[in-house]
Design a protein around this nucleic acid. Structure first.
Lengths: 234, 234
DNA sequence: ATGTGTGAATCGCTTCACAGCT
DNA sequence: AGCTGTGAAGCGATTCACACAT
């Protein structure tokens, strides 16, 4: 265990979370899976779990689990494993899931509308506060308790609701222009459903969601029965 | 160029596509991006492109582009680059996008319903033929030209429409049981929107789509401004 | 002269294996 | 004895760099 020990003013030492150095995207998405699984385990009343057991549920190796966690500190007890709810909370803190995020959706089409009341979001601190569209026939209508606002009022609305994250559910042809517009606001992250790479300033984070691409990958792997690790049977 | 030359009965040699050996998931998703971009380029009337230019659009390196393609053959001309429409067609063949796939959606909730007429699907050979739900109040209703069928009639329906791929848009708690049921049919692939790992026989392929997980990753990267390659600005 | 195709080198993620804590 | 935490080894993916085709 290498967590930094630091003298407090009172002279006591306290365990300080190691500065996460170079954490890969893969590690982050695995943390997200551990978090979800730990929630399930808690609901089942399971209070303890070893890296071996957790790995088995996810389909990873136990070393992978321990290595992932080791980037952020040491949360287990040798000989005992991890406390389910403690580990859950630690991961929530690492990932910023114990705070709440204000999210807006731009694009009130099929996808945008479907995400407005997606339960999985609210449950983990992502609150959909606003929905925008540039189609005047949609503006003013209600989608699951949210009133569709005109894109003209975007900047104003983002500020009013203190939006942190925007979900882009608009056509690919309009995505970059919208990203440029968002870059001038206080929005910090974009989840982009348009199948188009976005160029954003380095202060912003983009994640890409591309359902058609997943279907295409399915098509390839069905035709080329090369088992990839993530497709493996338990 | 190492494509195998094989004598035909008539004595002529024909270029035979190399058997794709160990193609990673990353390569396949990149192919999908090239394919999309090449479609755009064709529409813009651009007939030629170099690996360097293509890489710049995607945010990869030119060596990456050439290496990805080299798994399947050699499609360019030294000194000249690639013919846009030829490369597009080659990739379509590799990925199975020049045939058509019959797709069913199980779960007529927000996500399932939103995907019924997702234009990006039909454009590339994925035809949504059927929509199932176990909620009797939904069965018989029409969602964008499809009539919701009861899950009781699943197997029958899958056979009638010769479904190859199923999109699972049902709660996590029901996902594994449904996957087990699909394993007994002729369905070859599942695109799973439930945030739960599916165990399937090795003859089936699963791809996972998890929007909440993407938001969680956004959360992490916003809080830890470590630039990952995929977030880089052009 | 230009830009592909590809072995070789490099990089980074995963797994091994074991010291050390409980 | 049991299981974590982690340097080191292993391995797969990316990048380099150049011979070769046009």
């Amino acid at each position: 265990m290498k967590a930094v020990k630091r003298k407090t003013k009172s002279g006591k030492t306290s365990s300080v979370k190691r500065r996460a150095q170079k954490v890969s995207s893969s590690t982050v998405t695995r943390l997200s899976k551990y978090y979800r699984t730990l929630n399930d385990l808690m609901q089942q009343g399971i209070e303890h779990i070893s890296s071996e057991e957790l790995a088995k549920i996810e389909g990873f190796t136990s070393a992978q689990v321990r290595k992932d966690l080791s980037f952020f500190g040491s949360f287990g007890r040798r000989g005992l494993g991890y406390n389910t709810s403690e580990l859950r909370n630690r991961i929530a803190t690492i990932m910023g899931l114990n705070r709440s995020w204000n999210v807006a959706i731009v694009g009130a089409g099929n996808i945008g509308s479907a995400l407005v009341d997606y339960a999985e979001f609210r449950a983990h601190g992502f609150n959909i506060r606003a929905l925008f569209d540039n189609d005047n026939t949609k503006v003013g209508t209600t989608v699951k308790s949210l009133i569709v606002q005109p894109v003209d009022a975007l900047e104003e609305g983002l500020k009013r609701d203190r939006i942190d994250i925007v979900i882009l559910a608009i056509p690919a042809s309009a995505a970059q222009a919208m990203a440029d517009r968002l870059a001038l606001t206080s929005v910090r992250g974009i989840l982009n459903f348009a199948p188009k790479r976005l160029h954003v300033p380095s202060a912003m984070v983009v994640r890409q969601e591309n359902t058609a691409m997943e279907l295409e990958a399915l098509s390839y792997f069905i035709l080329n029965q090369k088992r990839r690790p993530e497709d493996a049977v338990s």
